[in-house]
C-alpha cells in the first residue's frame, strides 16, 4: 500500500509530537536519578556523618546550599538508620529556630520549629519501626519527653536553622549549633 504524501506528512508530524512527548517525560523523570550532587551529597563536605556540622554563613558567592536564608545560621547532620536510632538534642538561645528532616532524595519527612516543639529544647528521636519495637521493650527514662519519629527511610539528613536576631548574638548561636547533638541514644 502506498500512502499519499499529505497523509504521510501528517502521520510524520503526529509521530514527531508523540515521540517528543515521550522524550520530554523521560528527561524530566530522569533528571532526579542522574543528579551529580544532591543536597545529601553536598552536606557530607562539611563534616562527618551523625553529628551536626555548622554550615558557613550564607554570604554572596559562599552559599553552602542554594536558597538558604542569609538571616539564619544552619547546621546539618547526615545519618543512616542502619547505624542505630538518631537522637537530636539542641538548645538554641534565639527567638526562632526550626529543623527539617529530609530523606536522601531531599523530600521532607518531618519538620518543626521552636513553638511547635513545645519546649525550649529540641529533643527528637528518629528510628525505624523495628528499632522502635526493640526500644519499647527497654525504654529509656526520657522517652516520654522525646518527639519520636518513625520512618522507613534508611538514610537522610537534618537541617537545623537558627535565626540570628542581631550580629552580636551570632557567636552564641554558633556555639549552640556546634554543641547540638545528632547521635546515638543513651
Amino acid at each position: 500500500m502506498t500512502l499519499s504524501p499529505r497523509f504521510s506528512m501528517t502521520l510524520g508530524a503526529f509521530a514527531t509530537v508523540f515521540l517528543a512527548v515521550i522524550i520530554h517525560v523521560l528527561v524530566v523523570f530522569g533528571i532526579p536519578l542522574n543528579v551529580q550532587h544532591s543536597a545529601y551529597d553536598n552536606i557530607a563536605e562539611y563534616g562527618p556523618d551523625r553529628q551536626f556540622n555548622l554550615l558557613p554563613d550564607v554570604r554572596p558567592q559562599q552559599e553552602a546550599l542554594p536558597d538558604l536564608d542569609p538571616s539564619m545560621k544552619h547546621a546539618a547532620c547526615r545519618f543512616q538508620l542502619v547505624d542505630g536510632p538518631v537522637l537530636f538534642d539542641a538548645g538554641i538561645p534565639t527567638s526562632f529556630w526550626s529543623i527539617g528532616l529530609f530523606n536522601s532524595a531531599g523530600e521532607t519527612l518531618y519538620s518543626l520549629n521552636n513553638r511547635t516543639a513545645g519546649a525550649d529544647r529540641l529533643s527528637m528521636l528518629v528510628l525505624t519501626p523495628s528499632q522502635l519495637s526493640i526500644l519499647r521493650e527497654n525504654p529509656p527514662e526520657n522517652l516520654e519527653n522525646l518527639i519520636v519519629i518513625e520512618t522507613d527511610e534508611i538514610s537522610g539528613f537534618a537541617l537545623l536553622r537558627a535565626h540570628v536576631p542581631h550580629p552580636s548574638k551570632a557567636n552564641a548561636v554558633d556555639v549552640a549549633l556546634k554543641s547540638a547533638t545528632c547521635g546515638t541514644i543513651g
Partner: peptide, 27 residues
C-alpha cells in the same frame, strides 16, 4: 515543593539544584 506530592517538574528542579526547601513546619 520537597514533599511526596510535588509534581515531577519541581522534583527535577529541586533535585537538580540540590535545593533544600523550607518544610511546611518551618515556613
Amino acid at each position: 515543593a520537597g514533599t511526596a506530592e510535588a509534581d515531577p517538574y519541581s522534583v527535577a528542579i529541586y533535585t537538580r539544584g540540590a535545593v533544600v526547601p523550607l518544610a511546611s513546619g518551618e515556613g
